[in-house]
């Protein structure tokens, strides 16, 4: 056999690593510096699709006023949810048998519409529509007093991982908003929905569902509830988080809840690492 050609190598601690396996884990964990928090004071807030956007002006106008008022005090970035049109598109996609990656792609269009609508409503208060590629410009937008509005969907697109069973993407707008907060080094991610928070079952369908004000992600996973108010992948991410160790879910139809939640008051359900 001929000789193996030499590599053009750059020496680094990882140069000889496959980056996969126990040895790579050790190399990675040897860097134990505290995580650099990129924009820790930003407030990352999700506006629910089905829960808020699909209710139209009656729900949105008061909320918009409150967001505008809060933006005078905090750097706020909004992430938009999908809602009923995303569900319709997913139902069609399942019927046609498109793979999970295509489902994630079609699921991405609806939160973009919602983000654009939020931008129009917030424009006079500084609302701007941004894309994933604009994420690194957030300091500029905040300095100018803008309220950036991003789709909640993460940029996974065709590369969304299939799960067992359904082709509905596991990472949707809750995951995207949560991961925005984690990447920026924020301590809490905020989720505006139309329920007080987490219940033992969907309170819209089960009148006996009980409210859970505070719970750890681990406990919630162990409870194995039939329905939860936040995407299940977020619970897994929470347990591994370096910065964003809690999510606060609250009812945005009640005036004042957002203001209180941003001030650190406990108004809904807190799920923590």
């Amino acid at each position: 056999m001929t000789e193996t050609p030499e590599r053009f190598d750059i020496p680094s601690t990882l140069a000889e690593s496959t980056l996969s396996g126990g040895r790579a884990d050790e190399l990675s964990e040897a860097y134990d510096h505290p995580v650099h928090r990129i924009l820790p004071d930003a407030k990352i807030i999700k506006v629910g699709g089905q829960s808020i956007m699909d209710r139209g002006r009656a729900a949105l106008f008061p909320l918009i006023e409150e967001i505008a008022e809060c933006s005078k005090k905090y750097d706020i970035m909004l992430g938009a949810g999908g809602g009923t049109r995303a569900r319709h598109a997913y139902a069609l996609g399942i019927d046609l048998g498109v793979p999970t990656g295509v489902m994630a792609r079609i699921g991405g269009a609806v939160p973009r519409q919602n983000a654009r609508m939020l931008q129009m409503l917030l424009a006079k208060h500084g609302g701007i529509y941004i894309m994933h590629d604009d994420f690194e410009k957030l300091p500029l937008y905040f300095k100018l007093g803008c309220i950036p509005v991003l789709t909640g969907m993460p940029p996974n697109d065709y590369w969304e991982k299939p799960t067992a069973g359904t082709t509905i993407p596991a990472n949707r707008t809750d995951a995207g908003v949560y991961l925005s907060a984690e990447a920026l080094g924020c301590e809490t991610a905020f989720f505006i929905k139309d329920e007080k928070g987490l219940y033992t079952n969907d309170p819209k369908k089960d009148k006996n569902a009980k409210f859970i004000p505070k719970i750890s992600a681990q406990e919630l996973i162990e409870k194995d509830l039939d329905d939860v108010i936040i995407e299940r992948v977020v619970l897994e991410y929470l347990m591994r988080a370096e910065s964003c160790k809690q999510v606060h879910i609250f009812n945005g139809l009640e005036k004042g809840n957002l203001t209180r939640a941003l001030a650190g008051e406990h108004v809904g359900t807190i799920i923590h690492a």
Binding site: L96, G97, T166
Partner: peptide, 18 residues
């Protein structure tokens, strides 16, 4: 078929497979 679903319901995992 997904109307009013949270999409987090366990029943969907099997029911909504192509």
């Amino acid at each position: 078929p997904l109307m009013r679903e949270s999409l987090m319901g366990k029943h969907l995992q099997d029911q909504m497979s192509p």
